[in-house]
Amino acid sequence: MYCPNCNSENNDSAKFCKKCGTPLKKEVSHKKIINSINDEKSSKDDTTKYIIIALIIIAIALAGAFAYIGFGNHNDDGQTQVQNNASSSPNPVQSTQSSQPQQSSSAQSAAMDILGGSFSTGSSLSAKTYASIYVGSQHSGEKVIIQIKYSRDGSSLNNGNMVPKTVDSSGYINVKSADSFKYYPDFAEINLFDTNKNLLDTQSVSLSPDSSTQTF
């Protein structure tokens, strides 16, 4: 090591110049400086390399995740399409059943007949006339329209309104006259219709012109 003041040669371990006493500083060789710079650069390069590798791994993982999600959605769409096709395809059993003729309400009611019944008139002319028409308990709950025209000596006593009714649990249709009559009726015409006003049955009944209950 040389003294920077007097240029005298000293031992490398000396702290002061043996000739002039100037403090000596250890010189760092140019080679050591270059090596230090290279080491620092190498460390930075390694860090950059690790960051790039980490980013590549993350990108690959994200790509795999998106691919998996896309494949799952594709399968779901395929299953949905299959289900839609299955639901839109005609069921041969259902088609066979639907192709069979169904009995209309008119056809069902066509078998309904007037089988009997009774008329009741009050003890005074101010009372209304009640009719109970029997069609059979098998028609219980069915809806019908009934019309009863009353007359006396050939003269009409009422307008014969068409009245919607439901057959009761015993198979009877019960209906009363809208108004009281001026005379006791001696004749009644019963007309039975389905809900579409198709005539199902008709029957004429002769009555005794007095206050009583009469069956037919």
Rank of each mutant, 00 (worst) to 15 (best):
D168T: 00
L55E: 14
S140I: 02
I56C: 03
S177Y: 00
L62T: 09
K128P: 00
N75P: 06
V144R: 02
S137M: 01
K165T: 08
Y134T: 00
S156K: 11
Q100V: 09
N84H: 10
A61R: 05
H139W: 10
I114E: 04
G154V: 13
I57M: 07
L115V: 03
A111N: 02
P92A: 02
A127M: 05
I145V: 15
S155A: 12
A127E: 03
M112G: 01
G136C: 04
I60S: 05
Y150A: 04
K149Y: 10
T80Y: 14
Y134D: 00
A63S: 15
Q100W: 08
P90I: 02
I69K: 09
T96I: 08
I146K: 03
N85P: 01
N159Y: 14
L157P: 02
S118G: 14
P101R: 15
I53G: 00
A61V: 06
S87K: 07
A65K: 13
Q138W: 04
K128M: 01
M112K: 04
Q100C: 10
N73F: 10
Y68A: 13
S132C: 11
N75H: 10
S123D: 05
N73S: 08
I51N: 09
S156V: 12
G122T: 03
S106F: 12
S118L: 15
T129N: 02
I146M: 05
Q79T: 14
N75T: 15
N161W: 08
V82F: 13
A65E: 09
K149S: 15
N174L: 08
V144P: 00
K143W: 15
N174K: 06
S104L: 15
Y130Q: 08
A107C: 11
K176S: 09
F71V: 02
S155N: 11
Q147H: 06
F71I: 05
S132G: 14
S87Q: 09
F71P: 01
G141W: 02
N84G: 06
A107I: 13
Y68W: 13
S109D: 05
M112W: 03
Q147A: 13
A111D: 06
S132V: 11
G64D: 10
S106G: 13
N158S: 08
A54P: 02
A131G: 11
D113H: 01
K176M: 07
A65D: 08
G64L: 07
I52Q: 11
